[in-house]
Simulated scan of single mutants.
Amino acid sequence: MGKIFSMFWIFFKIGAFTFGGAYAMIPLIEAEVVDRHKWITKEEFLNIVVISQSFPGALAVNINTFIGYKLGGILGAILALLGTILPSFIIILLIASFFTKFRSNYFISLIFKGISAAVPMLVLVAIVSLSKSIKKNYTNLIIIIITVLCIEFFKFHPVLIIILSGIYGYFFCRKKVG
């Protein structure tokens, strides 16, 4: 029981102090649940991230809910969900109540400029961390290149890429049995 309350507090802190969305949170979540507490393995974490991207909704909420469920069933999932969304909810309420007074404040503007400069680097850390778990072979390299081209240059919707990748995996990545 202490583990799931500890998990709630960890997700609450990550949610409260991470700007830039889920991709900025991924390395922090991984550091806590995989490296520090060893609640799940690196491979399990990667699988959770991949599955979470396939579900609708906020990625960090999906990731943390899956982790919470793995650690504590339904109660763990609920606490993980609350730990993830409560900080944003509270922060948005506070900002909304004071925003009109501070939106043109020079110092607040500088703070947000500094935060916005750090966010892309947090996303890059997540990409590097997750890429370490991918097998290094030509097939995966080709899939990565095709995915980037389809999303960036041909403007495919990411959901379509996920569906096509799932179909590809189903038909071409099965291990031969027998």
Results as ranks from 00 to 15, higher is better:
1 M>F: 05
10 I>V: 10
11 F>G: 01
13 K>T: 05
15 G>K: 08
17 F>Y: 01
18 T>D: 06
20 G>Y: 11
21 G>E: 10
22 A>S: 14
22 A>T: 12
24 A>W: 01
25 M>G: 04
25 M>D: 02
28 L>R: 05
29 I>W: 03
30 E>T: 04
33 V>S: 07
33 V>Y: 04
37 H>F: 07
38 K>I: 04
41 T>Q: 07
42 K>A: 06
45 F>K: 01
45 F>P: 05
45 F>W: 00
46 L>A: 10
52 S>L: 12
53 Q>G: 15
53 Q>R: 11
54 S>F: 15
54 S>M: 14
55 F>Q: 13
56 P>L: 05
59 L>D: 05
59 L>R: 02
60 A>V: 00
65 T>A: 15
65 T>R: 09
71 L>A: 04
72 G>N: 01
73 G>K: 10
73 G>R: 05
75 L>V: 11
75 L>D: 11
77 A>L: 02
77 A>H: 07
78 I>A: 15
80 A>G: 10
82 L>C: 08
84 T>Q: 08
85 I>K: 11
88 S>F: 07
91 I>R: 12
91 I>A: 15
92 I>N: 13
93 L>V: 12
93 L>Q: 13
95 I>E: 12
98 F>C: 09
98 F>Q: 10
101 K>A: 11
104 S>D: 14
105 N>L: 10
106 Y>I: 15
106 Y>R: 13
107 F>V: 14
109 S>R: 14
110 L>K: 15
115 I>P: 09
115 I>C: 03
117 A>W: 10
119 V>K: 11
119 V>S: 09
120 P>E: 01
121 M>Q: 14
123 V>R: 11
125 V>M: 14
128 V>Y: 09
130 L>C: 06
131 S>L: 00
133 S>A: 08
135 K>N: 02
135 K>G: 05
136 K>I: 03
139 T>Y: 01
144 I>Y: 11
145 I>W: 04
148 V>M: 11
148 V>Y: 14
148 V>W: 11
151 I>A: 15
152 E>M: 15
155 K>S: 06
156 F>C: 00
160 L>F: 07
167 I>L: 08
